[in-house]
């Protein structure tokens, strides 16, 4: 739909009809303190009967409100339609900290999980940052990022900025005083999700599957445990976020099914980059990038042998979890607990 069509709609259509179709428009009027308009009238007529002083305080007049309203309609209709989907992401190598060239080029496709390993300060975060800003040879590494095998055009850049990448890290917290349900409703609202009820229910279910300890939709997000918060954030990113690329900076092992979590993200048609030294996570990935002195120095495909090790590593992990749970519930620990031979 063209800009003129939105303008025509804003001029001719009674407000309550627009609101019924685009509930988000209620926010437009709230933002301008226009809450007692005659909603049976089209915008301009409704404004005739409203408080002109209040409108002036916003530095607006009736004509400007009309223009802004049609822009608002256009912007948020676009948001609803926008999927920002990509098929692949290519990193065209730059150089390391001492100027040495890195791997020429390498492509990740949708559904792939890539772990990033390397010592502290080796440049893992720099790589994540290059991906996030769609580097174009203009960052210290000189890397370039191509999408779907092609250079990113200015228009694409504008469309994708801020929407390409979702991020998760250990430092992230919920800072809002909302229940889990309200939180998911708010996020679904901003995504203009058509079938919000269903999306929220699915996301809540996923979160609970990932979390060791269950929680209810009425739990406050600020009262979730570390593991529960992480589980909710991952499920929310997988089910609600539109970003096709997910960058993860470590997930602590606070009672959450990490393998499942990563799989969930990859299933949702996303490319998942995870910076980690957790063997369980690193080997769950399809590939791992080794970062050394600012360069991608090696790309290792997770071998069959490594994949076979995963079960053993998971057992070790389960042992630690079992020990933690016994301590949590006030039991003693014995060699049998360590070996897993003790019942309860």
């Amino acid at each position: 739909m063209s800009s003129e069509k939105y303008l025509e709609m804003a001029i001719a259509t009674p407000l309550n009809q627009i609101l019924a179709e685009h509930p988000i428009c209620r926010d437009f009027f709230m933002n301008l303190r226009l809450t007692d308009l005659d909603w049976n009238l089209p915008l301009m007529q409704a404004l005739d009967h409203s408080d002109q002083d209040a409108i002036t305080e916003f530095g607006l007049d009736r004509g400007m409100i009309l223009r802004e309203f049609s822009l608002f309609l256009e912007t948020f209709s676009r948001v609803a339609a926008d999927a920002a989907s990509i098929r692949s992401l290519t990193i065209i190598g730059g150089h390391g900290k001492s100027g040495e060239p890195e791997i020429a080029q390498w492509t990740a496709t949708v559904g792939e999980i890539i772990s990033i390993v390397g010592p502290t300060g080796s440049g893992k975060s720099r790589l994540l940052a290059d991906i996030e800003c769609l580097a174009d040879g203009d960052t210290p590494t000189g890397r370039r990022i191509h999408i779907d095998g092609r250079e990113v055009s200015e228009g694409q850049r504008f469309d994708m900025e801020g929407k390409l990448v979702a991020q998760l890290s250990q430092n992230m917290n919920f800072v809002m005083d909302l229940t889990v349900r309200e939180f998911l409703e708010m996020h679904a609202g901003s995504r203009m999700t058509r079938d919000a009820e269903n999306a929220i229910a699915r996301c809540f279910e996923c979160a609970n599957e990932l979390a060791g300890e269950k929680f209810t939709p009425e739990t406050k997000v600020t009262q979730l445990s570390g593991g529960q918060s992480r589980a909710l954030m991952i499920a929310d990113t997988a089910c609600m976020s539109s970003s096709p690329v997910v960058l993860i900076d470590e997930i602590e092992n606070a009672g959450i099914d990490r393998r499942q979590a990563i799989k969930l993200l990859a299933q949702k048609e996303k490319i998942v980059f995870i910076s980690t030294h957790d063997p369980l996570l690193a080997l769950s990935a399809d590939k791992r990038l080794v970062i050394k002195n600012g360069c991608i120095s090696r790309i290792i495909e997770t071998s069959v042998e490594e994949k076979n090790c995963l079960d053993a590593i998971e057992k070790l992990d389960a042992t630690l979890l079992r020990l933690r749970n016994r301590l949590r519930h006030g039991h003693e620990i014995s060699m049998n607990t360590v070996k897993g031979e003790e019942q309860n």
């Binding site: 801020g162 979702a166 991020q167 998760l168 996020h187 929310d236 976020s241």
Partner: peptide
Amino acid sequence: GDIVSQAEREVFAFN
């Protein structure tokens, strides 16, 4: 943005 959840970042940008 590094200390709040992805959802909060997205809603903030939406607003």
